[in-house]
């Protein structure tokens, strides 16, 4: 594992990172610092800029201004070094359905330049790790959604990246499949020390899986904190849903009012 490369211990560090599409500023002066080894959650309403931010961090999209370091390398100056250190699972199910799981992995192994001698051992390990060893020779179009997600994780971890970027990895999965993805992510962090950046709309996932969260609102970072810290900051008994609505909704903008609302609801619950 190469977690040493500079950037003062941060796997991801952005400074004034901004991306505009015409007159729309999708990501607006974002400053984030994600320590190595964390599972970091990125929350925000639809269109808040999560995918745009991830695309910049994974070198798919050039920033309009500002910069980001990923694994110690600048995304604009050293994109090739960044690419070698990251794994990415896009928001869409991107495994090739016309290939088998094994063939998908072989392609990744070759594109990441894994030495031939290591290739099969790594692929076997990734398949076993993701619980796909028995389905490796089947066409991916016969897989369930959960299996495809696990295959994509297998592809993304094959070259042992330092940092994994996952854009809504559990969307559309049933609770069982979702929990198995969580378990795999925790294992990846535990076994390989990977840093994981994950976006989600699922507050249970944010709370159960993530060490730290950033909530985006209209391209800006509305707040950063641990799940427990964010809830506590809103008032005792606040749920993650309420935290999200408070920072990402934009509907209730006065925190005082919101705190009152939480208080009232909590009281009501206790009484009812």
């Amino acid at each position: 594992m190469d977690t040493s490369a500079g950037s003062k211990g941060f796997a991801v560090k952005t400074a004034g990172l901004t991306r505009s599409f015409g007159s729309l500023t999708a990501v607006n002066h974002v400053d984030l610092a994600i320590p190595y080894g964390e599972i970091y959650g990125l929350l925000g309403a639809n269109g808040a800029g999560k995918t745009t931010l991830i695309k910049m961090l994974t070198t798919l999209l050039a920033p309009t201004s500002g910069d980001a370091e990923v694994g110690g390398f600048g995304v604009t100056l050293s994109p090739a070094q960044v690419r070698g250190r990251i794994g990415y699972v896009p928001q869409l199910l991107s495994a090739d359905g016309a290939l088998t799981g094994y063939e998908n992995l072989v392609l990744s192994a070759k594109l990441y330049g894994l030495p031939h001698a290591q290739r099969n051992a790594r692929i076997g390990e990734a398949l076993t790790f993701m619980g796909l060893a028995d389905s490796a020779k089947k066409l991916v179009k016969t897989y369930s959604g959960g299996m495809i997600r696990r295959l994509e994780l297998a592809q993304a971890m094959l070259h042992r990246p330092t940092i994994l970027f996952l854009d809504e990895p559990t969307i559309g999965l049933d609770p069982m499949a979702r929990h198995s993805v969580w378990d795999r992510l925790r294992d990846l962090r535990h076994d390989y020390g990977m840093t994981v950046l994950v976006t989600t709309h699922d507050m249970e996932e944010a709370e159960a899986l993530c060490d730290e969260l950033a909530i985006l609102h209209a391209g800006r970072v509305a707040v950063v904190g641990t799940p427990a810290g964010l809830r506590a900051g809103l008032g005792a008994g606040a749920t993650m849903d309420e935290v999200f609505a408070h920072y990402a909704g934009g509907g209730i903008s006065e925190s005082g009012n919101f705190r009152d609302a939480v208080q009232t609801r909590r009281t009501a619950r206790r009484l009812g």
Binding site: T58, T59, L60, A80, R83, G84, I86, Y88, P90, Q91, L92, L93, S94, D96, S108, L111, Y112, G113, Q155
Partner: peptide
């Protein structure tokens, strides 16, 4: 591209 395959190719160091 619509399936996300191109994204995956482009984030690789190839």
């Amino acid at each position: 591209r619509d399936l996300g395959v191109v994204h995956k190719l482009l984030v690789s160091p190839a």
